[in-house]
Design a binder for these strands. Structure first.
Length: 893
RNA sequence: GGGCGGGUAGCUCAGUUGGGAGAGCAUCGGCCUUACAAGCCGAGGGUCACAGGUUCAAGCCCUGUUCCGCCUACCA
């Protein structure tokens, strides 16, 4: 390209929006996200944690999917056949609530519609809005294999659900029974234990007198929920409790009801709590239910599924709301003088994780999964390393939960979901569990078979996700190629809901773990944002951030802060900071492309300069670092290493150092050699950066001469493995460090002494080492350029310079002539400061060397290091004090 | 009640076998130096929560204290 065209080729600043749109469409049309069903390349698979169809992209999704995308794009560059399986979750309760709200706004409700019409309405809703989150993932740059997108209610996945249900039922691992479950009166359904959120609440402890029937007094019980007393069927005390040892009456009168209930003895009762007497309400408390089982008590259900008191609550209470009833019971007891006292009492109250209403423990007939046997396998698989959980700290949590796991209530009394494949015969009440609706009852031949109306817990179908999405129960090619998947990337909030259950189901039905690794990342908590930014209390919407700063800046920010096992607190200012980085890269490209207008290869290592050798060496190191960091999920390390390399090594030092050569000031040979290096660095750096910032790298890739097609097809630079072009060069690094130190020291003098940057300085460098002198001489132009020197003289140590500021570097002394600009007091101050620092360091170093224990016990290389630094410091100190004296004497003149 | 994580610069946080305390942002000073003022050059700033212990040596290992956050639980 001839001059002038470059300006039009690259805008002055990076504008993300059109670029992002253009390349995402390009990737999709080119089919670059597609996995091969079979391939001789190694398979690498990730299944996406399916977002709810009702969802909108929040910070948690953004982080989670950025990480997965980094991994997938990186593995593709390493040559793997990558499958990133996308999809969405039907999210039973959540979606039903959303659609019900919509119906309410339209003046109707699901009962009015009926089940079939309602489900149809949900599907319609899903058609219309269900792809919102998918489109948002695309804006994030997610390179999922969209042609394989799945939905938990797809026919294929539904078939997998039925198959699993039937098999578990036949194996005796699914059963149905009357138990205390968590009931949400708002959502009108049972919930699993996990779906209940406990919250510490300030409540009251009511002490109620239950009159003994022999008239000898009262038994005082304490409760936080007085309304449940209407359903009491016993009072329990601990058999060891001496307070009640001599009690003769075997019964008490249950106030307000006129019923008589027994006093029983049970070890469960904690003597130290309250009065040591426990009212037993089997229908509304899980512990009481168990006690009831042991003592064969009656069960009286006084609270209905709607949260209102049942007829069994008795006249005056039946039909009341549970909280109104509480007030009335308290008032009535008070009136009868049976309320002894009310204490303040903190206890935790369960809330529905969907609607936040207070959950009611209630007696109900539900379906359960017997999870203990499944959990055993899931524990073993992590113990023996078939699945590795990272960071390791979560392993313990996983075990803890698995060991204490309780049966899983899987039936939900809602309409949206997988209807339980169980039918009851109207004739003989036989229960038939089958994949498809039976035509006749196998027991009596009756034809009146009614299907169970309940649907399954949403998490039941998500538990099958890693294999149901790949075509199970058919023998699909995908399963062969990609199961077990390579890694699951997820937040710890769904470790139990989802990960643990996938482990159990995967092991049971696939006879193998669903994933070899689980990477548990930090959480940007709370979709309402409160915990995202404690101090400011505001939400940050990822889409707004993308709109404002571009996807790449946002992604890079997330990666840069994704340190293992720590929450991310995100602020806009931080994204803005990384947008600067994207722009820096962009501008570096503008510059580089001015000088590499055609494909530049190969590198002639005999003709390249020191900075060329140095940056190639640094590239080699950062390549290794990036690979190692991504391989071990240290995204922040990878991002940090790349940031430092691009900005502070490539831009700050290499490009500045290379300018003279590139501008042709040093003749044609160096110019051409440097162009080849510049090309190589840029080429490889784009590939390294691509997983993190896919859009800008793709854009620049197409501007770089000599590249073909998408950067997504480019191979990860393998460093020394692939040839001689990229290798670590320690000698170049040492020499470059020397030059950088010298230049920085001179700049420091300029800055500290307020010498205008435009003023060229004259400097003399003295060193006793010949190799250092020759190295400096050989790169004199470089130093002069970057430190803005007029003249540079290099000598062995000799006469001290007059009227000069001094600086020390490892290996010699720099004198910067201050003729004309001298400010002696300024220089004296600077030297004193420096001297102070050296004196302090020297003191601690000396102390170590005088310490006999240290000298005796520390390893040799540590002692050597300390000795060497002592010598250096000592020499520094001497030189500095001499110079200080000289400056002071000059100052006096 | 049980468990886990955290307390490092003004802010947000790195710190991988124990061996000279770091980054980004913010602050201060100087620069419109021909890729970039979304930039360049330089500077200041920390009793690594507190108290003990192990060690020649502790931000890092051990014990205790304290503050914050989270997970979990069948304390009526």
């Amino acid at each position: 390209m001839s001059d002038g065209t470059m300006e039009s080729a690259l805008e002055k600043g990076y504008e993300p929006h059109e670029v992002e749109k253009k390349w995402y469409e390009f990737w999709e049309t080119e089919g670059l996200f597609a996995a091969q069903e079979t391939s001789d390349r190694p398979g690498y698979a990730i299944v996406i944690p399916p977002p709810n169809v009702t969802g909108v992209l929040h910070m948690g999704h953004a982080l989670n999917n950025t990480m997965q995308d980094v991994l997938c794009r990186y593995r593709r560059s390493r040559g793997d056949n990558v499958l990133w399986m996308p999809g969405t979750d039907h999210a039973g309760i959540a979606t039903q609530n959303v659609v019900e709200k919509k119906l309410a706004a339209e003046g109707t409700n699901r009962e009015a519609l009926g089940r079939d019409k309602f489900i149809e309405a949900v599907w319609q809703w899903r058609e219309k809005y269900g792809s919102a989150i998918i489109n948002q993932l695309k804006r994030l740059g997610a390179s999922c294999d969209w042609n394989r997108e799945r939905f938990t209610m797809d026919e294929g996945l539904s078939r997998a659900v039925r198959k699993v249900f039937v098999e578990l039922y036949e194996a005796g691992l699914i059963y149905r029974g009357q138990y205390i479950i968590n009931w949400c009166p708002r959502c009108n359904t049972a919930l699993s234990d996990l779906e209940v959120e406990h919250e510490e609440t300030a409540g009251r402890l009511y002490h109620i007198r239950y009159p003994l029937i022999d008239g000898s007094g009262y038994l005082v019980v304490a409760t936080t929920r007085p309304e449940t007393m209407l359903g009491d069927t016993a009072v329990a005390v601990n058999p060891e409790d001496e307070r009640y040892g001599s009690m003769t009456a075997g019964q008490v009168e249950l106030p307000l009801t006129g019923r008589r209930i027994p006093v029983i003895r049970d070890n469960y009762v904690d003597m130290s709590f309250g009065t040591g007497a426990l009212k037993v309400t089997p229908a509304h408390d899980p512990n009481d239910f168990e006690i009831c089982g042991r003592h064969h008590l009656d069960i009286v259900r006084v609270i209905g599924n709607d949260g209102k008191m049942t007829d069994d609550a008795g006249p005056g209470y039946a039909g009341l709301d549970r909280y109104d009833c509480r007030r009335k019971v308290v008032a009535d007891l008070e009136a009868k003088g049976l309320l002894e006292k009310i204490d303040e009492h903190n206890h935790s109250v369960g809330h529905c994780y969907r609607c936040k209403d207070v959950v009611e423990p209630n007696l109900s007939k539900q379906w359960f999964v017997k999870v203990k046997p499944l959990a055993q396998e899931a524990i073993a698989a992590v113990e023996d390393g078939r699945t590795r959980i990272l960071p390791e700290t979560w392993t313990k949590t996983y075990f803890e939960w698995m060991y204490n796991i309780r049966d899983w209530c899987i039936s939900r009394q809602i309409w949206w979901g997988h209807q339980i494949p169980a039918w009851t015969c109207g004739g003989c009440e036989e229960v038939v569990v089958a994949m498809e609706a039976p035509v006749v009852c196998p027991a009596c031949g009756g034809k009146e078979l009614v299907q169970e109306t309940d649907v399954l817990d949403t998490w039941f179908s998500s538990a099958l996700w890693p294999f149901s999405t790949m075509g199970w129960p058919d023998e699909a090619a995908l399963l062969k190629t990609f199961y077990p998947t390579s890694v699951l990337v997820t937040g710890f909030d769904i470790l139990f809901f989802w990960v643990a259950r996938m482990m159990m189901m995967g092991l049971y039905f696939m006879k193998d773990v669903p994933f070899k690794e689980v990477y548990v990342h930090a959480l940007v908590r709370d979709e309402y944002g409160k915990k995202m930014s404690k101090s400011k209390g505001n939400v940050i919407d990822p889409l707004e951030v993308i709109e404002k700063y571009g996807t790449d800046a946002f992604r890079f920010t997330l990666a840069a802060f994704a340190a293992m096992g720590r929450d991310i607190k995100l602020s806009e200012a931080r994204v803005e900071g990384y947008r600067h980085f994207i722009n820096k890269l962009w501008n570096a490209a503008r510059f580089a492309l001015m000088h590499i207008q055609t494909h530049q290869e190969p590198i002639d290592r005999d003709r390249i300069s020191l900075p060329d050798r140095w940056i190639l060496s640094r590239l080699s190191r950062v390549t290794t670092q990036t690979a190692e960091a991504i391989d071990s999920y240290r995204f922040n390390d990878a991002a940090g290493a790349l940031y430092k390399f691009v900005w502070h090594e490539f831009c700050d030092w290499y490009l500045e150092a290379a300018k003279p050569a590139l501008n042709g000031k040093n003749g044609d040979g160096p110019q051409q050699a440097t162009r080849t290096v510049l090309w190589r660095i840029f080429h490889d750096t784009l590939i390294l950066l691509h997983p993190f910032i896919p859009f800008v790298t793709e854009e620049l890739w197409h501007k770089l001469p000599g590249t073909d097609g998408s950067i997504m097809k480019a191979a990860f630079p393998e460093g020394a493995d692939t040839g001689a072009e990229v290798v670590v060069d320690p000698e170049a690094e040492t020499q470059m460090t020397l030059l950088v130190d010298i230049i920085t020291a001179i700049r420091n003098i300029r800055g500290e002494m307020n010498i205008a940057p435009s003023l060229a300085l004259n400097a003399t460098i003295q060193s006793a080492h010949e190799d250092i002198r020759s190295s400096i001489t050989a790169n004199g132009d470089l130093i002069s350029n970057l430190a803005r020197l007029g003249t540079l003289t290099v000598n062995p140590p000799g006469e001290r310079q007059k009227s000069a500021a001094t600086a020390l570097f490892e290996g010699g002394t720099i004198y910067v002539s201050l003729a004309g600009v001298i400010d002696f007091s300024q220089e004296a101050k600077r030297l004193e400061k420096e001297l102070d620092k050296v004196a302090k360091d020297l003191e601690t170093t000396a102390k170590k060397l005088e310490n006999r224990d240290f000298m005796d016990k520390a390893p040799e290389h540590v002692i050597e290091k300390v000795r060497a630094s002592y010598d250096v410091l000592r020499e520094k100190q001497q030189k500095l004090s001499h110079n200080l004296e000289r400056i002071k004497s000059l100052q006096e003149n």
